[in-house]
Amino acid sequence: MKDKKKFQINKYIFISILSICFGIFVWWLVTDGLGIFRSNALPSPVKVFESFIKKWYETKPDGATLLEHLIASLQVALGGYVIGAVIGIPLGIFMAWNDKIDMCVRPVFDLVRTIPGVAWTSVMVTLVGIGFLSKALVIFISAMVAMVINSYSGIKQTKTVHLWVGQTFGASNWELLTKIAIPSALPMIFTGLDVALGSAWTTLVAAELLASTKGLGFMIQQARGIFRLDIVIVGMIVIAITGAVLSTIIQWLGRKMIKGGRT
């Protein structure tokens, strides 16, 4: 019985691998195989793989290697993200904990959060010009918004009975917050860190497409201009992998930090 189940799971993994192989084969067939698509419309998988290897040491056509672009992007994204989290988490907690502040700030915040991060690019570029600072500011805003929303709802979801336990023991307001509300909101805060990371990374790509001289977004935009779609696809793959790796790190950190088997 157990063996049969194991076999079943293996069967589906096998189908998944087969499905991927088939997909890549079709991709190869319509490009290199039968030549239906030319490389400036859809490059073959072989070509994309070659470019992926080459781009690590070649600066052509956009003036920097893949690693340099990646580091440039990471610097901006993580810089804005960390500051966004450092300000956003306490702000969200504070808003949720203080009723009057909550009622005042909520409407303004609800309005600001509907503005996609990218839209701030124009404002920042006009204010401080194209460069590290304008992008970092845009990412800061979009990361902060996600952080505030999640830590806010984390604190709001604290069970009343948990607060009551603290109150009947005579805990002060500060103790209720730090010993009960924040630990109980921790899973949501980590969700926020993950969501904010996703939105920071997306916003970064957008900002780099729009206004930049380096970074992965810049690289794919430049490559598009000269119809080097192989490099565009390489860029997209690196963007996706980097985003996934960063998110995995946050989730791993969350599992380490969140006690008591809550996810």
Binding site: K159, V161, H162, W164, V165, Q167, T168, F169, G170, S172, I180, P183, S184, L186, I258, K259, G260, G261, R262
Partner: peptide, 18 residues
């Protein structure tokens, strides 16, 4: 509750999961 030593056992499960 800040001055007197009171304890309360609630109907709901109130242990802190963390």
């Amino acid at each position: 509750p800040k001055k007197q030593n009171i304890s309360y056992i609630f109907q709901e499960y109130s242990s802190f999961p963390w």
